[in-house]
């Protein structure tokens, strides 16, 4: 069963892959076994992360990038992540609207994903979906996320090249510092650069990136800042050239640095994976217990404070040795 699924995916079967991605997202039992078997077929794709504020033009930019990569004969997987409504748990996944022209191209697989998870689940399913695309033999995998929040930044960290898309008029450079985007960006794109305040944005970013660069250790790579008008196909060729340059810089790093970077990513991914299972399993175990419900009652009627309730629950439910923090 597992073998036949893996074989189909490695041969590029879209339906099997689409179904598996659905199962990954729904955490269907047994999916993990398939991912384990699929893992040895991964590691060949080049992963590009695209992140930026809502409305920055990420989907349009991705659409144009896919077009150019297809002209070069490369196959592409696109993973478009949109936010889940915190109120209803539903989502409108609208990124395909900007990528319509690729829908009949067999060399392009576009998949929308909602952020869903409450315990950082986004990062895990995203990485698993990347593995599926990778095993299918896609040359490039483009992951598009709304660049707000730790999960999205973590996804950016596990991409080979991270592109940050900004637009003029979104507040001064302080906003960008707050968002923590300078540290993770390998390439910056100022989209909608026909707007009058684009040059000011360019100057702001140049200054901030200079400061960031002085304390970074990435093999001398200087994050370029590009001007683009994705909707008019301006700046896309330049972006792909910079991505290629960044790819070469990464390849040219010393063996020690390569291993160091790989280890950093492996650590990030492994911790994430464990975090989800730990938090989910332990928390489910505790919240389904009678003691948990009793504690809630006690807090509500004022006979117990939440701090003591927390300590009591953990010391009753966690194995010995894990209780002292």
């Amino acid at each position: 069963m597992v073998d036949s699924i893996v074989e189909k995916i490695v041969n590029g079967d879209v339906r099997t892959a689409a179904k598996l991605i659905g199962d990954i997202d729904n955490r269907v039992p047994g999916t993990r076994e398939i991912l384990k078997a699929l893992y040895k077929h991964t590691g060949n794709a080049y992963i590009i992360g695209i992140t930026g504020a809502p409305g920055a033009g990420k989907s349009t930019l991705v659409d144009e990038m896919v077009r150019d990569l297809r002209l070069q004969g490369k196959t592409v997987g696109v993973l478009a992540v949109d936010p889940t409504s915190p109120l209803s748990g539903g989502a409108i996944l609208g990124d395909r609207v900007r990528m319509q022209r690729h829908s009949l191209d067999e060399g392009v697989f576009i998949r929308s994903l909602a952020t869903r998870g409450q315990f950082g689940g986004l990062t895990q399913s995203t990485r698993s979906v990347i593995d599926v695309f990778d095993a299918m033999g896609k040359d490039y995998i483009i992951v598009e996320t709304v660049g707000v929040g730790q999960d999205e930044i973590d996804i950016a960290k596990s991409a080979h090249t991270t592109v940050i898309v900004v637009v003029p008029g979104m507040g001064d450079h302080i906003q960008a510092i707050k968002a923590g985007i300078f540290e993770v960006g390998d390439i910056f794109v100022i989209n909608k650069s026909d707007r009058s305040d684009a040059n000011k944005t360019l100057h702001d970013f140049k200054a901030m990136i200079d400061i960031t660069r002085k304390r970074s250790t990435n093999g001398g790579w200087e994050p370029p800042i590009l001007m683009a008008e994705a909707v008019n196909n301006k700046g896309i060729v330049e972006l792909l050239i910079e991505i290629e340059k960044h790819r070469k810089t990464r390849k040219a790093l010393s063996p020690e640095s390569i291993i160091h970077n790989k280890k950093a990513i492996a650590q990030l991914e492994l911790i994430d994976m464990m975090k989800i299972r730990l938090v989910e399993e332990v928390l489910n175990h505790i919240t389904n217990s009678l003691e948990f419900k009793e504690c809630l009652d006690c807090i509500v009627d004022g006979t117990k404070d939440p701090y003591s309730a927390c300590d009591e629950l953990l010391s009753a439910k966690l194995p010995d040795g894990l209780q002292q923090s």
Binding site: T84, S85, L87, S88, G89, G90, A91, I92, L93, G94, R96, V97, Q100, S112, A114
Partner: peptide, 13 residues
């Protein structure tokens, strides 16, 4: 409506 009902909607336009 569907989003508000907790569904995920892939909207094509």
């Amino acid at each position: 409506y569907l989003m508000d009902a907790g569904m995920e909607v892939v909207y094509l336009g």
